[in-house]
Design a protein around this nucleic acid. Structure first.
Lengths: 118, 118
DNA sequence: CAGGATCCCATAGGATACTG
DNA sequence: CAGTATCCTATGGGATCCTG
């Protein structure tokens, strides 16, 4: 929590990369989709089942977006019937820390909200 | 990066807190505002200057939102002219890890994008 | 200076239906 | 099963102007 030892000029140097990251990760679904894929190769319908509430349209759109950003790989198996899966790329696996810190904070925040409501 | 040792049932247990966190932090401006306040108590105009591109309306709106969520404290100094500052709360200081991981990933991602474009 | 009020637009996101 | 197409609404976010 030692944030006060940072000099003011550093503010911009922190803000820029944070905003870079948010530009790519922002939205309701991108990180949840990546989380789901963290647990292994998955098909369209499997992701949809894990990420509760997402519609086909959004999943399709976000997967395409993530693929364009090099965060997700689409794998087409030439079998019959054709099979499609999605996996993380090496690059999106570097998101591990981001997801872990969000998970931890989300748990903390929920606890706080519950105790505040009392 | 040892994500593969996680069992499938854990997927939901990771997804829920991540989505809880995103519900509160989502949007273009909330985290950048918090980052700016990480560097100390700041007035409205000072935040606006640090967080490039934000409009008064959005800053006002987001500060209110963050205050409601217990992430930012509004301090009214009873001087003349009246002075208002914003500071982080103890709770938002627990976001330090989230911000740090986003900062690191943002830097990594930018490097990757640059080298990909070549 | 700190923001609220208003107006407007673009995009995120949802519902439903449909196809290879 | 794995999406696409359409249509719709809600919200995020910008521009501008106004006030204590």
């Amino acid at each position: 929590m030692e944030s006060t030892n940072l000099i003011p000029e550093e503010c911009g140097r922190t803000l820029r990369p944070v905003r870079d990251a948010l530009d790519v990760l922002n939205g309701k679904w991108k990180l949840p989709i990546i989380v789901a894929l963290t647990f292994g190769e998955k098909r369209f319908g499997e992701i949809a089942k894990e990420v509760h509430g997402i519609t086909d349209r959004m999943l399709s759109k976000e997967l395409r977006d993530l693929e364009l950003n090099g965060l997700v790989k689409r794998n087409l198996y030439d079998t019959y019937p054709a099979k499609v899966t999605y996996t993380l790329t090496a690059h999106s696996q570097t998101l591990y820390e981001v997801i872990e810190s969000l998970r931890k904070w989300g748990e903390l925040h929920r606890k706080k909200m519950v105790s505040d409501d009392k």
